[in-house]
Design a protein around this nucleic acid. Structure first.
Lengths: 159, 159
DNA sequence: TCGATCGTTTAGAATATTGTAAACGAATCG
DNA sequence: CGATTCGTTTACAATATTCTAAACGATCGA
């Protein structure tokens, strides 16, 4: 009956890959996270490569990216030179360390761009300039609303 | 002083492209939406192609995708065979028609996959099966939480 | 110190995405 | 009706992404 378990696990891994792909990411991100998420124990690079059927080089690159997002963690076993990866199980930490910082960064860069474009037309007084100013102000209102949504304590709690 | 206005607009268009790119999307989506968002009047395919410096074929494909997401709208001028596009200015509508449906679809497909994997190991009773069941149940809890977050009236209002 | 193991880097192959020109069908107008 | 305009489709070129094998440096143990 091991086959059914393997199938169930593998389908989840594939689904994780497809989900990542649908967000424009390398499917390996989702596959690797899911494999670790469903694994009893942490896995080393070679195990990850073997089970996902890709080279160790890919695993090396993708795993460091996943780690930088806080989605997986590096752990050591004493007396073993290798290191192992385990999935971050606390979704809150994953969101707070990985997702939110990147969104906040984008929102910040958007604010900078809007301000910069506004300053470029500071002295202009044409109809076109007025329209552009209006639209940029509107965009800034949208942007600020999103920002406050993220900071909202109620929303934070729900995450 | 038309140059400064053009610069301000073009920088916003480029920023829109970069934002889309950072989400793994074709930059043209962001560029095109931003161009329409900052435009006084709706623009036709040829105008979009000319102003963004790409072929009409690309515009044709990308515009229909944007339209299907509810990000832009098709409008007609009487006595003109061409049709024109304008940006959807109501961010709420954009979220409700474009973003949320796609998220809901993903959450739904995730639920299906979890259920399917659970049913595959229905009869299994090994330690591995138990662990997998636990993890899948945990994943389902996460998923359901996200779903309820989207449905939460407080959150809906904030959007 | 030598050989083995481990993780990383790199050069380039394989693949997927994106963009174009040209062909096309449909609608419009003289 | 032709001729023209408009949007779409298609075949293919350009580009970007993803993956691998091989080389590499570091570390450990014999």
């Amino acid at each position: 009956m091991g086959t059914n378990i393997d199938n169930a696990r593998w389908e989840m891994i594939e689904a994780g890959g497809r989900t990542c792909q649908s967000f424009g990411l390398n499917p390996l991100f989702g596959q690797m996270y899911m494999l670790l998420y469903l694994s009893r124990e942490p896995l080393c690079l070679d195990q990850l490569a073997e089970r996902l059927g890709v080279s160790k080089a890919s695993i090396s690159i993708v795993s460091r990216q996943l780690e930088s997002w806080g989605a997986i963690r590096r752990v050591w076993k004493r007396g073993d030179r290798r290191y192992f990866f385990e999935a971050e199980m606390e979704i809150r930490r994953l969101i707070e360390r990985g997702l939110l910082p990147s969104i906040i960064k984008k929102l910040d860069s958007a604010r900078h761009q809007i301000e910069r474009s506004l300053s470029l037309i500071d002295e202009a007084d044409s109809e076109d300039a007025k329209l552009l100013r209006d639209r940029l102000a509107d965009a800034e209102r949208r942007r600020a609303r999103l920002e406050s949504l993220i900071d909202n304590p109620i929303v934070r709690k729900l995450l």
